[in-house]
Design a protein around this nucleic acid. Structure first.
Length: 424
DNA sequence: TCTGGGGTCCTAGGACCC
DNA sequence: TCTGGGGTCCTAGGACCC
């Protein structure tokens, strides 16, 4: 058996933990740049504020109902997430942290337990340790556990815990779930299935396997098997090694000059290099892209992208910044209003792989990883100790393009200077 | 005026190998 | 006259996830 534990309205709940005056009030959290609504409390959902709705389109609604609006505060959410996951890890021999707000727990061998009571115990404990409300779904496959979790949240009589174990229970549950709400079925497939008369998870489970295999490939076939109780998706307790690393942002304002764009791209390259070193990887393929708003008129739209293969794999900020700068030179077109840019690293390999340091042309001018290794280590150590950004390369500047974050809450749990104060 | 960021997997087709 | 069988790697595009 698997349990899926999912935090309710996670970002909104994090804001509430340190601000109890928000309990009972509608709360929303916005994406980077305060662009879209990406988390809503139950009260905000009831008001009809859609997931992903642009803030400027629902501003009036937000004001009228006195909705508490926050910029996203990832240091806070990331730290709260690790507290929740640490608590969950105590409830199962093995756990897969699936996303910032949900985990699968391995409950194989828990058959002698009262699973409903165990689920309630998990909920109570997470709430007590972190202040975050969670829902628990338990079933024989991950996909069914997802469905159980959904039912636990949507139907109040379950009190946040739903166990799908007996056939009759499973069949009843599958009839409640629209095909588009199945894990692994997105918008395209949902509309395709609906036009073919498959409207619920029960219909999908009962459809012809050959037909599903033909139109939805192995991915769809696996979803169907999982709905029928055959587990195809194993618990991944060890996070797989990353295959690509990307840092990209929309800008807080329009950027026109190459110089301003260069600052942004340098910053993203530096972030990527840091992520690489944290993961213990090196990259051999660097891509830079810069783009105008996709909402621009077609004649004012531009999506420039260039890729460069490094002569030798690297995790060095200086090497990556140089590569990114070259690529920007090649793709930059004057006259456009740039709104977004990013750096993408691929061709990742472990930094300690045997032979990783060998190069066909070891005398090549960009062979500097060895020289800079110590410098990178020191830079990372200082930044770990004194806070991100304490030391950075001069080219990394946020002046020109800084994202908007007008309604940021304090980093209550990760900065001494922002710790919660209580006045009497 | 204003619209997020970061990933994965699968398939098909082309180029190549012995 | 006739033209195999089995495979890998790479890329683009499409689907999906949170």
């Amino acid at each position: 058996m698997f349990a899926l534990v999912d935090c309710n309205n996670f970002y909104a709940s994090c804001e509430r933990v340190f601000n109890p005056a928000l309990v009972g009030r509608p709360v929303v959290v916005l994406s980077n740049n305060d662009g879209c609504v990406i988390a809503r409390s139950e009260e905000a959902k009831v008001l009809g504020i859609g997931m992903g709705a642009p803030e400027f389109k629902c501003r009036e609604l937000l004001l009228r109902h006195g909705v508490a609006v926050f910029s996203s505060n990832y240091p806070l959410y990331g730290d709260m997430s690790s507290r929740v996951m640490t608590t969950l890890a105590g409830f199962a021999p093995s756990i897969e942290v699936y996303s910032i707000d949900e985990s699968f727990l391995d409950l194989s061998g828990f058959g002698r337990f009262d699973l409903e009571r165990y689920g309630s115990e998990i909920r109570r404990t997470v709430r007590r340790h972190t202040g975050i409300p969670v829902g628990v779904g338990i079933a024989a496959t991950k996909t069914l556990a997802k469905i159980a979790n959904r039912i636990a949240k949507k139907h109040l009589e379950y009190d946040g815990v739903c166990v799908l174990e007996r056939d009759a229970e499973i069949q009843r549950a599958l009839k409640l779930i629209a095909v588009g709400d199945i894990w692994g079925v997105g918008r395209q497939w949902a509309s395709f299935l609906q036009t073919n008369g498959i409207g619920t998870a029960a219909d999908f489970a009962a459809a012809s396997p050959a037909w599903i295999r033909q139109h939805m490939h192995v991915t769809g076939a696996r979803v169907q098997a999982e709905l029928n109780g055959h587990s195809c998706l194993a618990l991944e307790a060890v996070r797989p090694v990353k295959k690509s690393i990307c840092t990209s942002r929309s800008f807080g304002r329009t950027v026109r000059s190459k110089e301003d764009l260069r600052q942004a791209v340098a910053t993203f390259a530096g972030r990527c290099a840091l992520k690489l070193r944290r993961e213990g990887l090196r990259t051999s393929l660097v891509t830079v892209f810069a783009a105008t708003s996709r909402f621009n008129h077609e004649s004012e739209r531009y999506w420039g992208t260039r890729t460069l293969a490094l002569q030798e794999p690297s995790q060095d900020s200086i090497v990556l910044l140089n590569a990114a700068e070259q690529l920007l030179d090649a793709l930059y077109q004057p006259g456009y209003e740039y709104r977004k840019a990013g750096v993408l690293l691929a061709g990742l390999n472990p930094a300690d792989a045997p032979g990783a340091a060998l190069s066909l042309f070891p005398e090549a001018p960009c062979t500097r990883d060895g020289q800079h290794r110590k410098l990178m280590q020191i830079m990372d150590a200082v930044n770990r100790r004194y806070g991100h950004g304490t030391i950075h390369l001069a080219a990394e500047e946020t002046e020109a393009w800084k994202p908007l974050q007008k309604r940021l809450s304090p980093r209550y749990t990760t900065r001494w200077s922002e710790i919660l104060e209580v006045h009497s």
